[in-house]
Design a protein around this nucleic acid. Structure first.
Lengths: 345, 345
DNA sequence: GCGGCCCCTGTGAGCGCTCTCACCTCCCCG
DNA sequence: CGGGGAGGTGAGAGCGCTCACAGGGGCCGC
């Protein structure tokens, strides 16, 4: 019951089509340089036999796997539940699928799980890797570099040394943050607070930098570090209200955090946006559209970023047919952000 | 730059350890039946050379891949962003990792994408499949059965014919729904509405059945079909308020829907839970804890369900070391639900 | 009308591993 | 002290595929 009928081999296809294994192979792999009648015969044999190439056998000789690992280096389940990852995955999946590559998902489950992932990548089971959510102290980049696996990072990696050739896709976090603050000041707000993300991630650090660009001489107490979670946003907001009850705007480092902040503001009797304007970051729809009031936020095209990461990696891997428009060596991409105005600011 | 130094082969390990390839292989695969000094020698050689077995070569002869496909048959990006999937994935990943299996993620991107996935599964690239979010008319189960790939479904599959031996993991949707309604009636509510999920999914249908079990002779206008999304919840709630402005409770088929309903209720000036009590389903934390007021909901242990699915599949695949406690053929599992009381009901 | 060349096809050698089977050593028992 | 057996080890085949390379036609040019 469990055992399938043995799958047909290339040999079988060749026999049925009355050609050699080599010719059958050529047809299966595109059919260049094979004359038409033979191509047709082989195609028909493939069809009739339901032939599917044995990827293992193929990989064994080509040393290619047509598979890419996606590594999510985020041990916290709560954070992983951020729709952010789902959207990126979707973008990645689309692009990989379009080029017949498989997606091997590697979740880092705990603090000490990096070694396992490193070993897997070093094992040459995949052609390349897409890595997310790196923290500054993460050992993964080292392991990856050592393993020599072509990699594209999601978000600018934090280290400044050696790895300078690292490929990544990011959005312009700093300018996005500036835009948010600019919007707030445009609204006449002057006491603008910032709830950061975890500052060991460049996305959070860059957003803070953007905020500072605009608020150079603001009260430092207007900045509270947080962790990209709603609960963290609540805590941070309480802290802020305690420090500066007179604040009139909050720029949160992501939408989840903003949602938490919103709740605390309401609790405290403040009206949003009348008393305090709030801006988030990401424009994760299920969150940003569903808060009360709906969130004004800095949008980044998350799915597109995923797609770009995959495309970059495939080009790096020399995959033909990928992005013929862009010639030369692939290079990192920083996408612009756009401010999406809803009701909260 | 891209090319790695050629990876050492078993041959190299054997040579260095001064044994035959066969012995080296035995050690690498557990070392049973090899005498201690040799085991140590080979282990050391492996270490020194940084040897990692070539999975392709291994699969070629064993016909095993130690890889499992996870298929998410949900073309709608919005729905996919439900933290539900992320949590299941996490559970699955944990279990697979613990047994050295890889997770190949297959997202169905659009209406006509099933064929691709079917082909992949039939291609024998993975040992088994975990399939989610099936709709009644989904061609996938047929393709899978035809391909003969061992499969475990997430949620009871809808077809009643032929496939009866299908393995699945689900929670007790019907009893969970009953419990929700029971709680509401216990609160003295009598005009209890139900916002369903997409009724071509058994989870949604079962929850509706549970609701009906308790509300046999309720006004049919108290039931509105929806789609598990917040926006759908909003629409359904508006419809409901129009039909029966006097309703005093709502049981929503999932938390996302409940969140949408909550918003519309607030808009309409109703107080929750004083005027209208609301209960959700799932207990997806980022949603249920963050609504205003926090959501009373029927909890299912999503991550555990993922873990169980993986475990079931691995047992089905005859993976040694999995669930020794449970003997005999693996069978489907239905987990109990628990009511989590928060503020909304 | 014939030689040369190009295009197409087939042959054969592995890719790195596991697995069967034969062999060899050592131990135990009669 | 010799024979049988068990327990270890090694040799060799072959998984299904791709990729040189060799060879065989047909066609063009002179």
């Amino acid at each position: 019951m469990t055992d399938t009928a043995p799958r047909p081999t290339l040999e079988a296809v060749a026999a049925r089509a009355g050609v050699s294994r080599a010719t059958a192979s050529r047809v299966v792999n595109g059919g260049d340089g094979v004359r038409e009648p033979l191509v047709a015969r082989v195609r028909r044999a493939v069809e009739e036999l339901g032939y599917v190439p044995n990827q293992a056998a193929r990989s064994l000789v080509t040393k290619r796997h047509d598979a890419v690992a996606v590594v999510i280096a985020e041990p916290e389940a709560r954070v992983f539940a951020d729709p952010f990852f789902a959207l990126q995955l979707r973008g990645i999946s689309k692009e990989l699928t379009a080029h017949d590559n498989q997606l091997v998902l590697l979740l880092i489950e705990g603090r000490d799980d990096h070694a396992r992932v490193g070993r897997y990548l070093a094992g040459g089971h995949v052609d390349g890797a897409l890595v997310f959510s790196l923290h500054l102290d993460d050992p993964l980049p080292g392991l990856i570099q050592h393993a020599g696996v072509p990699t594209v990072f999601g978000g600018r990696p934090g280290w400044s040394d050696g790895h300078s050739e690292a490929l990544y896709v990011d959005c312009d976090n700093r300018e996005g943050a500036r835009e948010a603050v600019r919007h707030l000041t445009g609204l006449g707000r002057t006491r603008i607070a910032h709830i950061t993300g975890p500052l060991d991630q460049t996305s959070a650090a860059d957003r803070l930098d953007g905020y500072r660009d605009m608020m150079a001489d603001a009260d430092p107490r207007l900045v509270v570090e947080s962790d990209f979670t709603p609960a963290g946003g609540e805590r941070a907001m309480r802290e802020l209200l305690e420090r500066r009850p007179d604040l009139d705007a909050v720029f949160a480092a992501n939408d989840l955090t903003a949602a938490g902040a919103l709740r605390v503001l309401r609790e405290s009797g403040r009206r949003v946006p009348e008393d305090v304007a709030v801006i988030g970051f990401d424009d994760v729809l299920p969150v940003a559209e569903q808060t009360d009031p709906p969130l004004t936020t800095v949008r980044q095209d998350i799915e597109e970023m995923g797609r770009l990461m995959a495309r970059l990696l495939l080009r790096r891997l020399g995959h033909r047919g990928v992005a013929e428009d862009a010639e030369g060596a692939p290079s990192s991409v920083v996408l612009p952000t756009t401010l999406v105005r809803r009701a909260s600011a």
